[in-house]
Design a protein around this nucleic acid. Structure first.
Length: 561
RNA sequence: UGGGGAGUAGCCAAGCGGUAAGGCAGCGGCCUUUGGAGCCGCCAUUCGAAGGUUCGAAUCCCUCCUCCCCAGCCA
């Protein structure tokens, strides 16, 4: 058992927590996932969720969900709702620990007054442009604001007036008094409060001043008793500021910030701004379009929480920027679905097969396994008769080398049914095969032969008489370029869209048992891939989404030949 | 040219002075009523580069190179 546990490799954050626990620095680990409710969660967030909630449960601590809602101009309730839904879907729970940074506005305001009284914060009248000028540059130190030396009394009075709405938006700010020549720009008197009249999704119009991220985040962590505040690399140089506020405020808990590299996926775009563009421009059908890397999109596509969590776990946690191959995500899905998906037969590009030596009126019920990987999934009955459909791709007039499927004179196994030999075929005026003719070996019922011969390939089929029609949506990567963020001169990321990211197949033929399928149920259409009923589906118009293909060896061979 | 980070295989990633885990991809084979799944094997004499310390260095010390982040009243 111990050996099994050791399989998973560690990461630096886990090591830190383990050590803090061992050293008695903390009694219990408390992490938090702090989304800003200004968009839907995507696979990158899943990594963060998995780290924060995963580590908390691993060490029997807890993980808070805290909405970082300090900027009412971009935040909406719709996003709050979707974020909670997605976290639950992933299988994590914040229990009682649901928080909002906006819950702390009052406390934050009092602490701002405290800092003013300590002479560590001041009201600044510089405009946004002036603030930028005074900040200096990467190589040049900044200049002190002319308002930096205001008296405590004046600062107190002005700050109260800011709060009371006596100044227009953007007219003044409250700034921390740190060091205008600090090599770290974040320490050059950062803004703590700005005047902003916007209706907040929780506090309404109560406030017209709002704390910035830098002033709110660490203090929220402190209030909640967060021990390990885990964020992404770009906040690394905010850490000194994070610590400055923590050290200069009368706090009991002193949280610490740790940073890891955010997730990147090739052929995928993960910035909220770009995802929003895809949605608003109608390039995808919405945040939950199955091509979107959002959790809502993956859910609709047929990804399972287990697959996503395994992916997050295996991808690791480190500080080096990296781009993970999308094939890795797909593999995690296949791995999960292979064990759990019910098998069904479906024919995506149907062509009719007539079995000459099968009686016209006869039909029979064949027993087939729902999942050969796990017999507990049971069996079902499938009807077989003289006329069936098989897939066009399983037949070739002129078979290429290494093609083991059906061709004139060849024998294949019809899955769970009989060995079948093609004797003839019909084509239309365009040369398209419209009918395949052949005979079965009646001695091979169930797909076995007493004489020990075994066809090289087994193909799936669907009985004509009771087959169901279905629409099948084939999804592929949204972008053709490995890194759609890296754009050439005069182009933007939308120039790299994959025109075939969605291919809709109509009149596919599927097993009748699929009429009972429900959203969320996992199916493998044998030899094709994994599919899930789409939310647009109804009994009259069945629609399935392809979650991921099966590994396709033939496709590989075809490429080589 | 200021500050903060990072460089281990095609892609992730362990490794923490004792002689390069694991996964994905790829390649070869076995097996198979899914060309699926499964199984077996191969895939870094070398860790961004050059020096140095040491019996011994991916790990310690130097110098250099490359990449990423920061000049929002965004987070």
């Amino acid at each position: 058992m111990e050996a099994e546990e050791k399989k998973r490799s560690s990461n630096f954050i886990r090591d830190i927590i383990k050590k803090d626990l061992e050293d008695g620095k903390i009694e219990k680990v408390v992490t938090r996932f702090p989304p800003e409710p200004n968009g839907y969660l995507h696979i990158g967030h899943a990594k963060s969720i998995n780290i924060n909630f995963g580590l908390a449960s691993e060490f029997e601590g807890k993980c808070h969900l805290r909405f970082d809602d300090t900027n009412p101009s971009k935040e909406e309730q719709e996003y709050v709702d979707s974020i909670m839904e997605d976290i639950k879907w992933l299988g994590f729970s914040w229990g009682e620990n649901l928080f909002f940074a906006s819950n702390y506005f009052e406390q934050l305001y009092e602490w701002a007054i405290y800092l003013i009284k300590q002479g560590k914060a001041y009201v600044c009248d510089l405009t946004a442009d002036e603030v930028r000028e005074y900040r200096g540059t990467l190589t040049k130190p900044g200049k002190e604001s002319p308002y930096r030396k205001r008296s405590v009394e004046e600062n107190l009075e002005l700050f109260e007036k800011m709060k009371n709405g006596e100044f227009p938006d953007g007219a003044r700010t409250l700034r921390a008094k740190i060091d205008m020549s600090h090599p770290n720009l974040n320490m050059r008197d950062p803004i703590m409060y700005r005047i902003l009249r916007a209706t907040h999704h929780r506090t309404g119009d109560k406030w017209c001043i709002y704390p910035t991220y830098d002033y709110a985040h660490g203090q929220s962590d402190a209030i909640e008793g967060i021990t390990h505040s885990i964020c992404t690399l770009e906040f690394e140089d905010h850490r000194p500021l994070y610590d400055w506020f923590i050290d200069n405020l009368p706090l009991i808990h002193k949280p610490h910030q740790y940073e890891f590299a955010r997730l990147n996926l090739n052929y995928t775009v993960l910035s909220k701004r770009k995802l929003l563009t895809l949605v608003t421009k109608g390039i995808v059908s919405g945040w939950d379009d199955p091509r979107m890397p959002t959790l809502a999109g993956y859910r609709r596509r047929g990804y399972t929480p287990q697959a996503i969590r395994k992916f997050c776990e295996q991808v690791g946690v480190a500080k080096a920027n990296s781009v993970v191959d999308i094939a890795f995500l797909e593999d995690c899905l296949r791995d999960d679905l292979n064990k759990r998906a019910q098998r069904r037969m479906a024919v995506l590009k149907p062509v009719k097969v007539v079995i000459e030596n099968y009686p016209d009126e006869k039909s029979e019920e064949l027993e087939v396994s729902n999942n050969p990987e796990d017999e507990s999934y049971g069996k079902r009955m499938v009807k077989f008769s003289k006329n069936i459909y098989i897939d066009r791709d399983d037949f070739a007039i002129d078979p290429p080398p290494k093609f083991f499927r059906l061709a004139s004179g060849r024998e294949v196994r019809l899955r769970n049914a009989y060995y079948f030999t093609c004797t003839d075929y019909k084509v239309d005026d365009k040369g398209e095969v419209i009918e395949i003719i052949g005979k079965i070996d009646p001695e091979t019922r169930g797909g076995w032969s007493k004489d020990g011969r075994s066809p090289k390939v087994t193909i799936q089929w669907v009985n004509c008489e009771d087959a169901l029609d279905a629409e099948i949506r084939l999804y592929d990567r949204l972008f053709l370029k490995e890194n759609p963020e890296q754009v050439e001169e005069g182009k933007d990321f939308l120039d790299y869209l994959n025109p075939e990211s969605l291919v809709v197949l109509k009149n596919c033929k599927i097993e009748p048992s699929l009429i009972h399928s429900k959203p969320g149920e996992l199916y493998q259409f044998e030899r094709v891939g994994y599919f899930i009923l789409d939310k647009d589906s109804n009994k009259e118009n069945l629609i399935f989404n392809r979650s991921v293909t099966l590994k396709d060896n033939w496709a590989k061979i075809k490429k080589k030949v």
